[in-house]
Simulated assay, not measured.
Amino acid sequence: MGNVTRLRHALPLSQDINKALTELDSSIAKAIHAAKAAGLPQGLIVAELQGHAHAQTSIMVG
């Protein structure tokens, strides 16, 4: 896990990181709204997000 940065050690966050985080959050929110509008069940949306979170966690600790 040497490539993982704990946010409390990186505070204050740089403008680049803040911008990237804001863009990520906005993109995720837009994708969720689009999925809901397309009729995907909320449970499927949550499962998809959880799957990605699990995969990224596995990459970080692997």
Results as ranks from 00 to 15, higher is better:
18 N>V: 10
52 H>G: 05
34 A>W: 01
39 G>A: 07
41 P>D: 11
47 A>D: 15
53 A>K: 12
25 D>Q: 05
60 M>N: 11
22 T>S: 11
9 H>K: 12
8 R>I: 03
22 T>W: 06
61 V>T: 10
26 S>A: 14
29 A>S: 14
20 A>N: 15
33 H>G: 01
30 K>S: 13
60 M>H: 06
46 V>H: 13
36 K>D: 05
57 T>D: 07
32 I>L: 03
7 L>G: 02
1 M>P: 01
37 A>D: 08
62 G>I: 03
16 D>C: 05
54 H>R: 13
47 A>C: 14
55 A>W: 04
4 V>W: 04
35 A>N: 00
4 V>K: 05
13 L>F: 04
32 I>M: 01
25 D>L: 01
43 G>R: 07
28 I>C: 08
6 R>H: 13
27 S>M: 04
16 D>G: 05
11 L>N: 07
10 A>V: 08
54 H>Q: 14
3 N>V: 08
59 I>L: 12
47 A>V: 10
24 L>T: 12
19 K>H: 13
45 I>A: 01
32 I>R: 00
49 L>M: 13
37 A>E: 06
8 R>M: 06
54 H>S: 09
18 N>C: 12
48 E>P: 02
14 S>K: 11
14 S>Y: 04
5 T>R: 09
25 D>H: 04
10 A>T: 03
24 L>I: 13
51 G>W: 02
34 A>D: 09
21 L>I: 03
28 I>G: 02
56 Q>T: 09
23 E>C: 07
3 N>K: 12
35 A>V: 01
19 K>V: 05
49 L>R: 00
3 N>Y: 11
39 G>R: 03
2 G>T: 09
15 Q>S: 12
3 N>S: 15
14 S>A: 13
53 A>W: 07
20 A>C: 11
22 T>Q: 14
56 Q>N: 07
28 I>R: 08
31 A>Q: 14
19 K>T: 10
45 I>H: 00
26 S>L: 04
48 E>K: 04
45 I>S: 00
48 E>D: 15
35 A>F: 00
2 G>C: 10
24 L>E: 14
56 Q>Y: 10
21 L>W: 03
62 G>N: 06
32 I>V: 13
34 A>C: 06
38 A>I: 01
57 T>F: 10
48 E>S: 13
4 V>I: 15
6 R>P: 00
16 D>L: 05
24 L>S: 12
38 A>F: 01
46 V>Y: 10
39 G>K: 04
59 I>G: 03
48 E>V: 09
56 Q>M: 08
56 Q>E: 10
48 E>Q: 15
26 S>P: 00
58 S>K: 12
31 A>M: 12
41 P>K: 11
48 E>R: 04
51 G>T: 06
40 L>K: 12
26 S>N: 10
6 R>E: 11
50 Q>G: 10
10 A>F: 01
43 G>I: 04
25 D>E: 09
48 E>A: 14
44 L>N: 07
37 A>Y: 02
33 H>E: 06
48 E>N: 14
24 L>P: 02
57 T>L: 11
61 V>N: 05
7 L>M: 14
36 K>Q: 12
5 T>G: 02
28 I>D: 03
20 A>Y: 12
10 A>M: 06
35 A>D: 01
47 A>S: 15
36 K>I: 07
34 A>M: 07
10 A>P: 01
35 A>C: 07
42 Q>F: 02
47 A>P: 02
27 S>D: 05
47 A>F: 09
54 H>I: 07
57 T>S: 09
